[in-house]
């Protein structure tokens, strides 16, 4: 019972960390960044390189953010910007970028599955139940990410401008907000978050050139049911991630893997705005 509750909380935290970057980009730019999976892979390999170089595994997180962010800048400038008016095409072009990133990584590192060193090993005793210390640490990291993003959006001028662009881009531009710059920074930040997410999940699984793809679809569905709100994303991660854990433990892991996608599709059919309040 305790183990299962912890599973649900930690799964939700991981999903939250993976989906925030995608949510940010979707909220501001109204496009789905299918390169998110590729950028996560990039973050994973950044973590691999970091630990292989003998650096502190925690350093993998900022390094992955740097890799993701810089790649994101290039993607925004050369691929996403020409496609603002064609959102469905932006999905396709970013998917193409995902393929490119995957193939470049394959050329550089080979197809094989590799493992990174976890920054935290061992278990922590919680109410008599030994639980992976790293998974628990992820809850804290995800919470930190969420709080930092909320602070950025609610407490800074950039955040105010970003929220203005989310609500009404034309009006925001009319008021002199440089929405192009807001989009550029958002995409960079979203890509950096994808890199961080990639670095965070590598100690849990392994690193391979296609590691981002399975996460992409789940993150995508979570974002669609949450609209553009970090709070409803948290809610969606808890509900759908929880359902995934329950189905996987009580029925079958295969069905568990489908839970988020199928549930999200049904939720959107019944309530097109998903978990968003409006």
């Amino acid at each position: 019972m305790i183990a299962q509750t912890l599973d649900i909380v930690t799964t939700a935290a991981i999903l939250y960390a993976v989906a925030t970057g995608l949510l940010l980009v979707f909220g501001v730019m109204k496009i789905i960044n299918f390169a998110h999976g590729g950028l996560m892979t990039l973050g994973g390999y950044a973590a691999l390189v970091t630990t292989q170089a003998g650096l502190n595994p925690w350093l993998a997180i900022p390094i992955a953010a740097l890799f993701g962010g810089v790649t994101g800048m290039a993607i925004e400038r050369f691929v996403v910007r020409p496609l603002y008016s064609r959102p469905l095409d932006a999905i396709l072009a970013t998917w193409g970028l995902s393929i490119i990133i995957g193939q470049l990584i394959t050329l550089a590192f080979g197809r094989g599955v590799q493992f990174t060193q976890s920054p935290l090993s061992g278990t922590i005793d919680i109410l008599g139940e030994g639980y992976s210390a790293y998974r628990l640490a992820l809850v804290g990291i995800a919470a930190l990410l969420g709080l930092a993003l909320t602070a950025l959006l609610q407490g800074t001028r950039l955040g105010l401008e970003t929220r203005a662009v989310i609500m009404n881009e034309d009006l925001a531009r009319g008021l002199g907000i440089n929405s192009g710059l807001v989009r550029f920074l958002t995409f960079t930040l979203g890509s950096a978050l994808a890199g961080i997410a990639g670095a965070l999940i590598t100690p849990l699984s392994s690193v391979d050139p296609a590691m981002g793809v399975p996460w992409l679809v789940n993150a995508f569905m979570l974002v669609l049911v949450s609209g553009a709100s970090l709070v409803s994303l948290l809610f969606a991660c808890l509900v759908l991630g929880g359902a995934q854990v329950l189905v996987a433990t009580h029925f079958s892991p295969v069905l568990g893997g489908l839970t988020i996608a199928v549930l999200a599709a049904i939720i959107l059919r019944l309530r097109p705005q998903g978990f968003a309040r409006d």
Binding site: G96, I99, I100
Partner: peptide, 15 residues
């Protein structure tokens, strides 16, 4: 390399 070429071509065509 072949997959890479297709990926690059695809992005180029879409954009």
């Amino acid at each position: 390399v072949w997959q890479l070429i297709i990926g690059v071509l695809f992005v180029l065509v879409i954009v």
